[in-house]
Design a protein around this nucleic acid. Structure first.
Lengths: 350, 350
DNA sequence: CTAATAGGGACTTTTTAAGGCCCGGAAGCG
DNA sequence: CGCTTCCGGGCCTTAAAAAGTCCCTATTAG
């Protein structure tokens, strides 16, 4: 049943909003019948005219009665509403989950896609698509996008449709948010930058630095004119697209020394964002030696953050860095959202 | 599943046509891929622009690929199409049934509604609704409607929505197509005429004649000025709405003498339309003594016929009078339609 | 080469949705 | 009683989407 909804959503996205609107309309009418257009329009926060158009349709289909006192459901309308309720349940539930997470995290923009990326590749793909959509929406007029690496961001990049020449974003520039991390080339920021630029038909700059430089060579390299230029782009990025990682998993992936892992464990780091490790309270407990965008710059800076994370196992990490997610957009999936709510409920009762 | 379709059809009728169009589009693309817009537009008999709008939507959803050679389904598109096929099957099947009956009966207008009125009251109601819709569609500008009695026409009348004063059909006049028949007042033509006029907010005239008059008194009554006036209205009716009856059942219902029943049986009458009884070949074998519209008048006359019949058991009767159904609209249900096809196939092999 | 077919862009016309406003009627209330 | 506050419905204007039309370039089969 939920399968069907997704397909309908795919094949007639616009029309589906009419469906849910009319469903809510029927629902509200049942709740308050008899009720008139004005009140309905207030309660549903929809313009009166739209209510009117819809009610006229529903009346002509014999689902509602319209008399002087207001509108009421007919028997058939009640039956239809019941059947619709079955159909819409997953959609409504997802919306409730979204609401719950929204009040908890207070994100500026929150998107929750169905499914759980942890054990469903399809869902992971959809997460990427949604994030790509959000990104493209914010791209208008912006000129610099900084992105991190990671398998999640990779999904986002792969979900960006190829744009045609001539470029619709002629002034766009994509840069990695930080120096390269990890050894899996496919999910390195540099690689993703190139891929994204290819899809967006725009320019890009890379940060070709070896991993885990010493403090000293890091400082000296930072003085290189070319590097400095990229740094300046990064610091002035208009959009920062990043994933939220699970601390331990990131350490493993980056092939760091055992000592680092010990540190992570000892300090109970759970989340990783932009090279910083966080404990459950959101305190930075460690920062990897790569270079690039710093968190506090993101916190107050003008760059618009777009955070993406999917899968129930990411819930703890998302909660840990919640205070950094209030600005900007957050794109998660149902699995993560539900676990977030469960964890929050649990910690409240403790 | 078929339930769901009906509900969607109810709550978003316009949008559903887009759904079936896009479904057919995907289907056709799969069949002929790679294929271009022009060819598609030819094959589907849809303007090229519509194809273009739809394909752009489908492409943006990633269901099809568009390359120089034409359009092809993506993997996801194929999956979506398969799932849609499940959903659309009942709809497609009904359409095929309709096509089959259409080629068989060659009706000017043929409507087939889902379900079987014989054993489903809901379906019977829907049949009435569809017929009412057809009637209202043809009402524009027309001034006289003649209707018969019968439970089917009763359903049609009851499905006509109440119109508001001032009457949208000020010049409309409803008359019974024939004198009263049968003893069940609720389904007598006179009664239905009054009900219909009430709903349409229009004038009406009745034919208050006793049943089964002798030839002689019939002739004399026919000379009455008032009766003559109604006759003239009937003869010049712009629309004739009538049901198709099963001969034996009609005889029973009309409480006719046993001799009549014997005659019906002897001459193998199967159908009854407008007071005439027909055998399986469509020959008139008997005519009841009531008065009013004659069949041959309908056959060549200017009045637009709207015939309504539902239920598998009506199939034989419908087939018997098929030659009278080519002009005008025919509204039947799935049950009748399927039986019609089965009977036709059977008689062909004999 | 040419002719045919592909997608795509640009423009106009048509249709439909939305917005906004006002009207008369029924019900509740001082 | 008169007042306000609901109600649906009519009507006109504006805005946006869909459809229709025409023309363009690229690719490929013959």
């Amino acid at each position: 049943m939920t399968e069907l909804l997704k397909i309908l959503q795919k094949i007639m996205p616009k029309e589906m909003s009419a469906l849910s609107r009319r469903y809510t309309l029927l629902h509200t009418i049942r709740l308050f019948q008899p009720i008139g257009r004005r009140l309905l329009s207030q309660k549903m926060r929809i313009s009166e005219k739209v209510i009117r158009t819809d009610t006229e349709l529903l009346k002509s289909e014999g689902l509602i009665d319209i008399v002087f006192a207001g509108m009421t459901l007919t028997e058939e309308g009640a039956r239809v509403l019941d059947s619709l309720q079955e159909l819409m349940r997953p959609l409504e539930e997802l919306d409730k989950v979204r609401e719950g997470v929204q009040t908890l995290l207070e994100s500026q923009e929150l998107y929750v896609v169905p499914g759980d990326s942890q054990n469903n590749q399809e869902a992971f793909k959809e997460l990427g698509k949604e994030a790509a959509r959000v990104l493209l929406e914010h791209l208008q007029g912006k000129s610099t996008v900084a992105i991190t690496g990671g398998s999640t961001i990779r999904k986002v990049v792969e979900a960006i449709p190829f744009q045609k020449a001539p470029s619709p974003f002629p002034k766009l520039m994509v840069v990695p948010a930080r120096g390269s991390l990890g050894n899996n080339a496919k999910i390195q920021a540099n690689n993703l930058v190139a891929k994204m630029a290819e899809r967006l038909q725009c320019r890009y700059r890379l940060l070709n630095l070896p991993d885990n430089l010493s403090r000293k060579s890091l400082d000296s390299v930072s003085q290189e004119p070319e590097i400095k230029e990229v740094f300046s782009l990064i610091r002035n990025a208009d959009i920062v697209l990043f994933g939220i990682g699970i601390a331990e998993r990131m350490v493993e992936r980056r092939n760091l020394e055992p000592s680092v892992m010990e540190e992570i464990r000892e300090k109970r780091a759970v989340a990783e964002v932009l090279g910083h490790y966080f404990d459950g309270q959101g305190n930075i407990v460690s920062t990897s030696c790569s270079i690039g965008l710093r968190l506090h710059e993101l916190e107050q800076g003008g760059g618009y953050p777009i955070a993406v994370a999917g899968g129930a196992d990411k819930a703890e990490a998302i909660l840990a860095v919640r205070k950094y997610l209030r600005r900007g957009a957050l794109v998660i999936d149902e699995g993560a959202a539900k676990r977030i709510l469960a964890l929050a409920a649990g910690s409240k009762t403790l």
